[in-house]
Lab assay of single mutants.
Amino acid sequence: SEFQINEQVLASWSDSRFYPAKVTAVNKDGTYTVKFYDGVVQTVKHIHVKA
């Protein structure tokens, strides 16, 4: 599913667990740039983002 900029989502971290994050960019290659609550910004594949 498509997510929008500033949408609150759950994004997987390197430990494969999902954490609350905010979408900061929707990228043309189908990835999302997300910002976790601790301030870390990461680009993740769409399969690693869920509502």
Results as ranks from 00 to 15, higher is better:
K50E: 05
A25I: 08
P20N: 04
Y19D: 00
N27Q: 02
K22F: 12
F18D: 04
P20A: 06
Y37R: 06
V9Q: 01
N27D: 03
P20G: 03
F18V: 04
L10W: 09
I47T: 14
V9Y: 03
L10Y: 09
E2R: 14
S14R: 11
K50V: 10
A21L: 03
H48Y: 13
T31Y: 08
S12V: 11
K22W: 12
S1K: 14
T43E: 07
I47S: 14
V44A: 03
D29T: 00
A21S: 01
G30K: 02
G30Y: 04
F3E: 05
A25R: 08
F36N: 00
V49S: 10
L10K: 01
V9W: 04
S1N: 12
V40K: 12
E2Y: 08
Y19W: 10
A25D: 06
W13C: 15
T33V: 12
Q8V: 15
V26T: 04
I47H: 14
Q4N: 10
E7G: 03
Y19V: 08
I47K: 09
A11I: 14
Y37T: 08
R17V: 14
D29E: 03
Y32E: 03
S12P: 10
D15N: 06
F36W: 07
K45D: 14
E2A: 11
T43D: 09
S12K: 15
V44C: 09
S1Y: 14
I47V: 10
V9K: 02
K35F: 07
I5Y: 05
L10V: 06
S12D: 05
T43W: 04
A21R: 00
V49M: 11
N6R: 02
F36S: 01
Q42T: 13
T43L: 05
T24L: 15
E7P: 00
S12E: 15
R17T: 13
G30A: 00
F36E: 02
G30R: 01
V49E: 05
V9I: 09
K22T: 15
K50M: 11
R17A: 13
Q8M: 14
Y32S: 03
K50C: 10
K50N: 08
F3M: 04
N27E: 01
Q42W: 10
S12T: 07
D38M: 06
N27P: 00
K35Y: 09
G30Q: 01
S14P: 09
K22I: 15
I47D: 14
H48K: 13
K35I: 14
T33H: 02
P20S: 01
V40R: 12
T31L: 02
K35A: 09
E7M: 10
A25F: 06
T31D: 06
Y32P: 02
I5Q: 06
V40G: 07
I5C: 07
F3K: 03
H48R: 10
E2S: 11
K35L: 15
A51Y: 06
V49L: 14
E7D: 15
G39H: 04
L10R: 01
V9R: 02
V44S: 04
P20E: 05
A25P: 01
T33Y: 06
K50D: 09
T31N: 05
P20W: 05
Q4E: 10
V49N: 05
R17K: 13
K22M: 15
T31F: 05
K45P: 13
V23D: 00
Q4C: 10
D15L: 00
N27W: 08
G30W: 05
K22D: 03
Q4F: 09
D29P: 00
S1L: 14
V34Q: 00
V41K: 04
K45G: 12
E2Q: 13
V40Y: 10
T24W: 01
S16D: 14
K28T: 12
V41L: 09
K28C: 08
V49R: 11
K22C: 14
L10N: 06
T24Y: 02
I47C: 12
K45T: 13
Y32G: 02
I5H: 05
S12L: 15
G39A: 04
H48T: 07
Q4A: 10
K50Y: 08
I47Y: 10
V41H: 06
Q8A: 11
T43C: 07
S1I: 13
A51G: 10
V34E: 05
T43N: 11
T31E: 04
H46K: 15
T33E: 13
G30F: 04
V40S: 15
D38S: 10
I5E: 08
T33I: 09
V23F: 00
F36V: 00
